[in-house]
Each structure stands twice: as structure tokens, then as C-alpha cells.
Amino acid sequence: MPAALAIGDFSRATSLSIKTLRHYHRVGLLAPAQVDADTGYRWYTTDQIPTAQVIRRFRTLDMPLEQIHAVLQAPDLATRNELISAHLASLEQNLARTQSAVASLRDLLAGPSPAAPVSHRQVEAVTAAAVTAHIAMSDLVPWYSGALAELQATLEAQGLRTAGPTGGMFAGELFTDEAGQATVFVPTTIEVPRLGRVEPLLVPAAELAVIEHPGSLADVDRAYGSLAAYVADHELRLDGPIREYYLVGRQDTADEGQWRTEVCWPIFSTGAAA
């Protein structure tokens, strides 16, 4: 029969504070082997030490308590490993985002890079298949990915061909109020029927100031900043949604270094060349 340890001794044995052990007990993650009915004092056994050590290591990897509980309660080894692998994949994604942010910050600290050239373009109205929603800025990336996948699946199922690069239109409120209307669209040769979230859309004609951003969208704000400065300097700005055209994007390759995105600001053209 395993030996019993008072909570203080168990704390020293596992490097988990008494406060933490009490919290784990309250949430049902690591219950003591015995609780004194009169004093409420907690006792643990030596065979609980490995479980406590596993919990501590998962916490150092920022695994949420509910996920740790799911791992500990997994019915079989395959399920347990699947849960652990999913968390490790999430950590790797976070690490990649952190590394990208660090690289971007180093570039900024090194000094401003030469701004990409800005061009003027007049685009005609085009027929498109689109998904539109009012979303929070924090949900933009997952919403965009889901909307794009739905658009591609719908067009493929109906045997429709695209007639231009995928684009997006984003209301000003999405930037200023962190919530607003967003649209992802794919130009088509004919009008598409409404199906699920996909609906036909006539993307309006517009005059645009355009700057091209190469690579990941993690630092596309630099292109936005350069374009905004240009538009302000030339007093060309019009109210209207910002557009993005994904010349090469996630729909083409998973290699973010190959992506090319046009950021477009609606303008009132004076006929001056950019």
C-alpha cells in the first residue's frame, strides 16, 4: 500500500505549491487520496507523484487545465497521444507566429525599408461568388479561411471557372471599431446561384491606389501604412471599403514566402501618375 504524504510534503515532492494543489483539487484535476472530515486537511499518496509531475510538465507547455484533464482521463493510449499531439501542433504554430513577429520587429528597428511603388488602377465591375459577414477583427483570419474554402468547394462542385484573383473587401469599421463587414469573393464568368453562405455579388467598379505586399500577411500593416501615407499626401482618399487581391495566396500555396497581395485604397483619381 503506498505511503501517505501530507499536503506540504507532497508539495515539496512535486514542486507544486499548496495553493496550486488546492486549486487542482477544486477543479477536479488532482484530488487528494484522503481529506480529513474534521480538519479538511488533504493527504496524498506516493503513487500520485507521477501524475502530479505529468500535470506540471503540461502546464509548463501552457496546456489548459481542461485539456490536461482530458489527457489524464483518455480511454486509451491512442486518444491520449492524439490530444498531446494536437497541443504540440498548436505550440508549433504559436512559435512560428512569434518568430515571424520577432523578424518583423527587427526589420522595423533596423530602419524603414524602401516603400513599394504605388500605382493607380481603374477596375470594372465584375460578377463574383462571395461570402459576406459582420465579424470581429480578431476572427478575421479563421473566418477568411473558412469562407475561402467554402467558395472553392462551391465553385468546384458546380464546375465553374474563376475569372480573376480572389479578393476581399473590408469596411472601415473593421479597423476603427474592431468589428465590421468583410467580404471574400472569387470573380466568375457567370452569376452563381445562392448556396449556403455563398451568394452572387457584383463587385463594383472603382478607382484604386494599389501597393503590392510580398510574403506573409503577418506584416501586411507595413503595406497599409505606406499606402495610407501616399493617399494622404496626394489628397485622393475616398470613403469605401479597402480591397485586397490575393495574386498568390493560401489558395495557391502553403509557403507564405511566396504570397503576393495587393492592398487597394479607393481614391478620386486626378489623372496624375503614381
Rank of each mutant, 00 (worst) to 15 (best):
71 V>Q: 03
178 E>C: 06
145 S>R: 10
134 H>A: 11
10 F>L: 07
81 N>E: 15
63 M>R: 07
246 Y>P: 01
145 S>Q: 14
3 A>L: 05
87 H>E: 08
56 R>L: 14
14 T>V: 09
206 A>K: 01
72 L>A: 11
21 L>D: 15
216 S>A: 13
62 D>S: 08
156 E>Q: 07
238 L>V: 15
108 L>I: 15
167 G>I: 15
34 Q>Y: 14
212 E>S: 06
225 G>I: 06
212 E>R: 03
110 A>C: 09
154 T>N: 10
93 Q>V: 15
57 R>Q: 04
111 G>V: 05
56 R>C: 12
151 L>C: 05
25 H>M: 11
253 T>K: 07
223 A>R: 04
156 E>H: 05
200 P>L: 02
95 L>R: 13
12 R>V: 11
214 P>I: 04
123 V>S: 02
274 A>G: 13
270 T>C: 00
241 P>R: 01
87 H>N: 02
233 D>I: 09
119 S>W: 04
138 S>A: 12
172 G>F: 02
147 A>Y: 07
39 T>W: 04
229 A>R: 12
18 I>M: 06
156 E>W: 04
116 A>F: 11
5 L>T: 08
164 G>V: 02
273 A>T: 15
178 E>Q: 08
197 R>Q: 14
62 D>L: 07
221 D>S: 07
213 H>A: 10
134 H>N: 14
218 A>Y: 12
102 V>H: 10
74 A>R: 08
88 L>S: 06
50 P>H: 04
182 A>D: 08
270 T>Q: 02
40 G>Q: 08
99 Q>R: 10
148 L>V: 15
195 L>D: 15
51 T>H: 01
224 Y>P: 01
138 S>K: 10
73 Q>E: 10
25 H>A: 11
33 A>V: 06
154 T>E: 14
263 V>R: 00
77 L>T: 13
47 D>P: 06
95 L>A: 14
16 L>T: 09
260 R>T: 12
8 G>A: 08
220 V>C: 07
16 L>M: 11
160 L>W: 12
60 T>N: 01
